[in-house]
């Protein structure tokens, strides 16, 4: 099997989660999600609309940065990505402060997590520092009580070690697969919250030869235009 970069594996995981979304928006500093979305687009050759908030040339937003939120508010964004300095087992995310450290801030999360059709949580670091029993600050809640209008919520949590799917009714993550090189035991030990899992965990499928060809050609070209440092690090 051809060697691949960790970023390429994660992008493939994201591509496999896109499903029937027709319009995907990508916010600040998200090169791996953007890579996965472009890969999905080239793989399936279906007309996926991809709106990169920070696209440097040909940016799709002509009404200023509020347009992303207005689109989402109307239900025109099917899929969005969020991260977190901390993420907990109820899918709450914290982008503000943790363990005395300050992080950039909540960005549009407190709105987008509600308004986008679904959200993929993405954080490369998989540790008890990041995946905590309870976030110190809720930038955006993972679920809302009945009576609070909310279109969407979490679909999955992807980390550098594993993929979890969100179970809306149980309000709990279920381990879907463990990335090559890690074991179920590693995941249990490095996750600060409880989650459901099978007795023997699935292994995340490695990128296929076809996926790698696309990643290193058409996708790399798209990504280097907007995330030059990331593209240089992964593909040069």
């Amino acid at each position: 099997m051809e060697p691949y970069a960790r970023e390429e594996l994660l992008a493939c995981c994201i591509a496999r989660l896109i499903g029937d979304a027709r319009h995907v928006a990508i916010g600040a500093a998200s090169p791996i999600p953007a890579t996965g979305v472009f890969l999905s687009n080239f793989l399936h050759q279906k007309p996926l609309r991809i709106s990169l908030l920070h696209k440097r040339s040909g940016n799709p937003f002509t009404e200023g940065s509020r347009e992303l939120f207005d689109l989402a508010g109307q239900g025109r964004i099917d899929l969005f990505f969020l991260g977190g300095a901390q993420i907990d087992g109820e899918a709450n995310i914290n982008l503000v402060q943790a363990e005395g450290k300050r992080f950039p801030g909540s960005f549009g999360s407190a709105f987008m997590y509600f308004a986008a059709g679904r959200t993929i949580l993405f954080r490369e670091e998989h540790s008890k520092r990041v995946l905590v029993p309870r976030v110190e600050f809720i930038s955006a809640p993972g679920w809302s009580p009945p009576g609070v209008e909310r279109r969407g919520g979490p679909q999955a949590l992807l980390t550098g070690k594993a993929l979890f799917l969100w179970q809306k009714d149980q309000r709990r993550f279920r381990l879907e697969s463990v990335h090559p090189g890690n074991t179920l035991d590693d995941i249990v030990k490095s996750t600060g919250f409880g989650f459901d899992h099978q007795a023997a965990a699935n292994t995340t499928a490695a990128p296929s030869a076809g996926e790698l060809v696309l990643l290193r050609s058409l996708v790399a070209k798209e990504i280097s235009a907007n995330y030059p440092e990331f593209a240089a690090r992964v593909w040069l």
Binding site: S65, R66, G108, A110, F111, M112, A115, R150
Partner: peptide
């Protein structure tokens, strides 16, 4: 959070005291 700032400025643009915004609860 981003749309709260946009909405607050839009309220001033319109000369009204506030704007409603979905999400954020919780």
């Amino acid at each position: 959070t981003c749309p709260a700032i946009h909405s607050g400025l839009q309220a001033t643009e319109k000369g009204v005291p506030f704007m409603p915004l979905r999400g954020v609860l919780g």
